[in-house]
Simulated scan of single mutants.
Amino acid sequence: MLRVDRLSAWYGEAQALREVSMRVDEGEIVTLVGRNGAGKTTLLRCLMGLHGSYGRTTGTVSLSGEDVTGLAPHRRARRGLGFVPDDRGVYATLSVEENLLLPPRRKVGGPGGPEAWPLERVYETFPMLRERRRFPGTKLSGGEQQMLALARVLRTGARLLLCDEPTEGLSPLIVAQIGDILREVKAAGVTVLLIEQNVHFAVTVADRHYLLAEGRIVESLGNDQVREREHELLDYLGL
């Protein structure tokens, strides 16, 4: 579904990504693992077309065989890319339900592809959002804001989610709930690429893992490899 070929990115003269090549196949959950400053968030911004306001890029990004490298972020969204940023992007002056109703809904996946989630399905999957649907977005806890950010993207009909640190700072109970939701999203036909520092969590939801170091993909690991090298990876990540 997603193909990245020799993607490089700069902030001024500082190079953040160095010829990154990777793939995410349809129906997979894939994680990007790396130390802070390795380039993980920059990579997601490049995939969404958001890096242009920060610096220049080279290389190509393809979605379902279409080269989307030159497309603006809103055009990539119309082709099925959905972005859940690390700050969650919840609109503070809107209620939970208004946040959910704001994005346009469209079917982007073609025959058999994911469809935009109706509001009732969102509330069935995220019951706490139903309970708090009249609350302003800023009155939610961190975990509730993360669920709102995920639900809002699913409302658009996205078929590939780009998630930046969805479990950061959350309690173990909420982390487990996020895992359940990601597995349900995958079962519904949505593909996921996420940044995740929590190695224990990553192996419970992901099919494969890319290790990013100093702006380069240095390894592609399966779950068994991650488990076998858990202590080495935790030491490397400084966790």
Rank of each mutant, 00 (worst) to 15 (best):
Leu7Ser: 09
Gly12Val: 11
Gly12Ser: 07
Glu13Asn: 10
Ala16Gly: 03
Ala16Lys: 03
Arg18Ile: 10
Arg18Asp: 12
Val20Ile: 13
Val24Leu: 04
Val24Asn: 02
Val24Pro: 04
Asp25Pro: 07
Asn36Asp: 08
Ala38Glu: 10
Thr42Gly: 11
Thr42Lys: 04
Arg45Cys: 12
Arg45Pro: 09
Leu47Val: 07
Leu47Gly: 06
Tyr54Asn: 03
Gly55Pro: 02
Gly55Gln: 03
Gly59Pro: 14
Arg75Gln: 15
Leu81Lys: 01
Leu81Tyr: 01
Glu97Ala: 14
Leu101Thr: 00
Pro104Cys: 04
Lys107Trp: 14
Gly113Lys: 08
Gly113Phe: 10
Arg121Val: 14
Met128Phe: 05
Leu129Thr: 06
Arg132Glu: 06
Arg132Asn: 11
Phe135Trp: 11
Thr138Trp: 12
Glu144Phe: 11
Ala151Tyr: 08
Arg152Ala: 09
Arg152Gly: 08
Val153Gly: 01
Cys163Leu: 15
Pro166Arg: 02
Pro166Asp: 01
Ser171Gly: 09
Pro172Ser: 05
Leu173Ala: 13
Arg183Asp: 10
Ala188Gln: 13
Gly189His: 06
Leu194Ser: 03
Ile195Ala: 07
Glu196Arg: 00
Val203Arg: 01
Val205Gly: 03
Ala206Lys: 06
Gly215Pro: 00
Arg216Ser: 14
Gly222His: 04
Asp224Ile: 00
Gln225Phe: 02
Glu230Leu: 15
Tyr236Ala: 10
Gly238Gln: 12
